[in-house]
Every structure is written in structure tokens, then in C-alpha cells.
């Protein structure tokens, strides 16, 4: 639970962010529809969606802030808490589990030295599990930030993490 006293200062979309939003405004009959896109931009620009970021989005779109909060906490892809630079998301749904997602997860936990839900000390990696990401035919898989990594093996993971450092 966070303080509801909002320090509004320090939250403002970049010019590009604002432009994207303004452009999108033309695509919808109601600006409420921009809430999800605006939250993405806010997350991208402010790192995560804390109360200030949510309040800012509410102000920009003229949507009640409680509504913005309700929406941001409904969807799994919005982060209301800070995460590491690389968000490692391991699919543990059935198809991936059948092909060893648990093992992959354990391997990552050991390798990163953290448990699921935690962030490494250097704030580089946060490890979480996710539900099916639509890569069941190339299981097991994980998504790091926006990128899919499929047909995972231990060696593959070593290489991927190396590339992310």
C-alpha cells in the first residue's frame, strides 16, 4: 500500500511519448481507449507504474485516477513495483512444463542466485513465472522484456544471459 499523497512533480511524458499518444488519439472515438497504451508509455518512460505515474496518466487522459489504478493492477504486464533491467519471464503453463519448464526455472534461480519473484542485487534481473505465451510448440520458453527465447536448454540460457549483461 502506498501513500495516496501524490508528488505530481517529476512525471511527464517525453515529447515522443506524448506525440505517440496524441497520434493515437485520432484512432479512437473515445480517449478512454488510450488508457492501456498510455500505461505502456508510462511504464516505458517511468520504469514502473507507481502512484505518481498513475496519477499522471489519469491527469493526461482525464480519467479518474482510481480507474487508472484499477486497470493497471488488473493486467499482468503492468508493473506497479520496480523490476530489474531484464525481466525474465518463464512460462510454466502445461506445454512448457511437460518439456521441463520447472527445470529451466530452477536453473535460472541457481544461475541468478534469486528465487522467483526476486530481483538480483545489481538490479539487472527480475525472475518471474508467466502463463502461456503462445510458444507451446517451441517449449520450454521464456520472454526477457519483449523478446521471446524458445526451445530453451541450459546452454541456451547461459548464452542468452551472457548476451544480456
Amino acid at each position: 500500500m502506498e501513500d495516496t499523497n501524490i508528488e505530481k512533480k517529476g512525471y511527464a511524458f517525453s515529447k515522443e511519448g506524448m506525440n505517440i499518444l496524441k497520434e493515437m488519439m485520432k484512432d479512437y472515438p473515445s480517449s478512454d481507449a488510450l488508457l492501456l497504451p498510455a500505461l505502456y508509455i508510462a511504464q516505458e518512460e517511468f520504469g514502473h507504474l507507481d502512484s505518481g505515474a498513475l496519477q499522471y496518466v489519469a491527469d493526461v487522459l482525464k480519467v479518474p485516477r482510481s480507474k487508472v489504478f484499477g486497470v493497471a493492477t488488473y493486467y499482468t504486464m503492468y508493473k506497479t513495483k520496480p523490476t530489474g533491467k531484464h525481466l525474465v519471464q518463464v512460462c510454466t503453463n502445461l506445454s512448457c512444463s511437460l518439456l521441463g519448464a520447472d527445470h529451466i526455472l530452477k536453473y535460472l534461480e541457481n544461475k541468478l542466485g534469486i528465487k522467483v519473484g526476486e530481483t538480483t542485487h545489481d538490479k539487472k534481473f527480475t525472475l518471474i513465472t508467466v502463463e502461456c505465451l503462445g510458444s507451446c510448440g517451441t517449449a520450454p520458453m521464456m520472454q526477457v522484456n519483449d523478446t521471446y527465447y524458445e526451445n530453451l536448454t541450459e546452454e541456451g540460457i547461459d548464452r542468452i544471459l551472457e548476451g544480456l549483461k
Binding site: 503453463n93 502445461l94 506445454s95 502463463e131 502461456c132 503462445g134 507451446c136 510448440g137
Partner: peptide, 11 residues
């Protein structure tokens, strides 16, 4: 939205 676990046909 292709979210049904096991489904990746639209991708």
C-alpha cells in the same frame, strides 16, 4: 489475443 494454453496457431 491468443491466450488459450497450447494455442499458437495465430502467431
Amino acid at each position: 489475443d491468443e491466450g488459450e494454453p497450447g494455442t499458437y496457431k495465430d502467431r
